[in-house]
């Protein structure tokens, strides 16, 4: 039995969720890592101290800079079809590539796994997390994506553990071409791995009003999140959306402001350790999952909270 973790990164740095995916993989056997990038060195230097892994396979190719699913999936299908498990993080990259790879290898993908029960049995949320399904796999190859909030991070030691090895060659695809990206710039912590998340909803009323929330976030060193309604209204960028079809977060503290608490939103944050809700409607469903609720106008409560924190 051999297990591969496909490392998620931005060509310079590891995506933190990869550490959670490796931790999950270590519940299976013989873990190797794969780095596909136009520049693998820095990423490998981060990976080499991770405990209990075997090989770190790399392929350095300009084509991998943009991580097109066509290229990555083809490469993995050609070089790793003798593996028993291939794991990805459930990031936008993982969700893009893993099912394509499963299609190439004629195997049923097992997405968004939150628990590995045994080598062929996995738990995953369905219906926006309103139910948890236990699935027994009859696949020969399990292609799995891991929900990072459900696993701890792999341990990092001082010794060089992984053996780095260049592998395979890529025939680049001629179907899909990367053009450019419009990335959201932020000095704040990354949303899915932050300790504290401050999220705003339609109740904020405008993009300008989000600034009062951002002040609170900056005081707390928090990441910013949002409901779908706030993103759809154009108050904030799409990559802030928390929920069933957005990002999944589980910080120590989640502060939901002007968010009603629709099932689809709760799906993305209800595993947070402590949840607080601030909403002027005392009947708002967000209060049913809040550890502490405050029924007050956010335009009064948020600036007051910000000024009283030090």
């Amino acid at each position: 039995m051999k297990t591969l973790v496909v490392v998620d990164h931005n060509n310079n740095k590891l995506e933190k969720s990869t550490l959670n995916t490796i931790k999950a993989a270590l519940k299976l056997e013989n873990v190797d890592l794969l780095v596909l990038s136009d520049s693998c060195k820095d990423i490998c230097n981060e990976l080499i101290h991770i405990k209990n892994i075997n090989n770190i396979f790399t392929n350095e190719n300009d084509a991998f800079k943009n991580q097109l699913a066509e290229d990555s999936a083809n490469f993995i299908a050609e070089n790793f079809k003798d593996y028993t498990n291939i794991l990805f993080s459930n990031t936008s990259n993982g969700k893009n590539i893993a099912p394509r790879l499963a299609g190439l290898l004629d195997t049923m993908i097992i997405p968004d796994v939150i628990e590995i029960v045994d080598k062929q049995t996995f738990k995953r949320p369905i219906y926006a997390g309103n139910a948890i399904a236990t699935c027994k796999s009859k696949n020969k190859i399990n292609i799995i994506t891991i929900r990072s909030t459900a696993f701890e991070e792999a341990e990092i030691g001082n010794e060089n553990v992984g053996k780095i090895q260049e592998i395979g060659s890529l025939t680049t695809n001629n179907q899909t071409k990367y053009l450019n990206s419009e990335l959201t710039k932020s000095e704040r912590p990354e949303l899915t791995s932050a300790d504290i998340v401050v999220s705003g909803g339609r109740g904020l009323g405008s993009a300008e009003n989000f600034q009062i929330l951002e002040k609170l976030a900056d005081k707390l060193g928090a990441a910013m999140g949002a409901s779908r309604a706030a993103v759809d209204a154009g108050y904030v960028p799409n990559d802030w959306q928390v929920g069933q079809t957005g990002k999944i977060v589980a910080p120590n503290l989640y502060i939901a402001v002007g968010i009603s608490g629709a099932i689809q939103h709760l799906a993305g944050m209800k595993d947070s350790k402590v949840i607080i809700g601030i909403n002027k409607d005392e009947e708002a469903p967000i209060f049913s999952i809040s550890d502490y609720g405050l029924a007050e106008d956010l335009f009064k409560a948020v600036p007051e909270m910000e000024s009283k924190l030090n």
């Binding site: 936008s92 899909t176 071409k177 990206s181 419009e182 899915t192 960028p237 799409n238 990559d239």
Partner: peptide, 8 residues
């Protein structure tokens, strides 16, 4: 995508 928008 996770960081914003990608055009292809």
């Amino acid at each position: 995508i996770d960081g914003g928008i990608e055009n292809i």
